[in-house]
Simulated assay, not measured.
Amino acid sequence: MSSWPTEIRLSKDRRTLHVTFDDGASHALSAELLRVESPSAEVQGHGPTQKKTIPGKRDVEIIKVEPVGHYAVKLTFDDMHDTGIFPWDYLRELGETGEAKIQAYLDALAAQGLSREPARRR
């Protein structure tokens, strides 16, 4: 690993995780990006062709950030997804490629006729 996080801070509205690295790089990662790009098998599947497009996460919030050893954090989202462990390198990658990943996500939603909007309760 080329850099180490010096600060991980959740915004007051719980929709942005701020990560600063020891080389000065700093990223604001949206909860939506983190949820739809979770490294969990539930999202990524068990192979490169199995990734799932998760709709309805525009307003998702992070309700818990827990350290995992000295290499990662486990995030719990308000939809109760909590199986993704986010290593430092992956957080860095999301910070550097997040805009492209969100655009790919939006394109996948459109192609599948899905929406970012949460399902309405009746």
Rank of each mutant, 00 (worst) to 15 (best):
R14K: 12
K64G: 04
S30H: 08
Y71K: 15
A100E: 03
I54T: 12
K64P: 00
Q44N: 02
A41S: 07
G95S: 02
R92L: 08
M80T: 12
R9T: 15
H70T: 11
Q44K: 11
P87S: 07
R121S: 14
G45P: 02
P5L: 15
D107N: 13
A41N: 08
A28L: 00
G47Y: 11
L91A: 07
R9P: 02
L34Y: 07
A25I: 04
R92I: 01
I62M: 10
R92V: 04
E37W: 03
F21K: 11
S40P: 07
P39E: 08
P87G: 11
S2E: 09
D23P: 05
S115Q: 07
E32V: 05
D78Q: 00
T16M: 06
E37M: 04
E93S: 15
P48L: 07
A25D: 08
I54G: 10
L10Y: 03
A108Q: 15
A108I: 10
G47I: 02
D23A: 12
T49R: 07
G98T: 03
G24P: 11
V60C: 01
K64M: 14
S26P: 02
L109G: 15
R120Y: 01
F77G: 12
A72C: 08
H46C: 02
P5Y: 06
L29K: 04
A108S: 15
E42N: 12
E117G: 02
H46G: 10
R35D: 10
H70E: 05
Y90E: 15
Q112C: 05
S30F: 00
K74W: 01
I85M: 06
P87C: 03
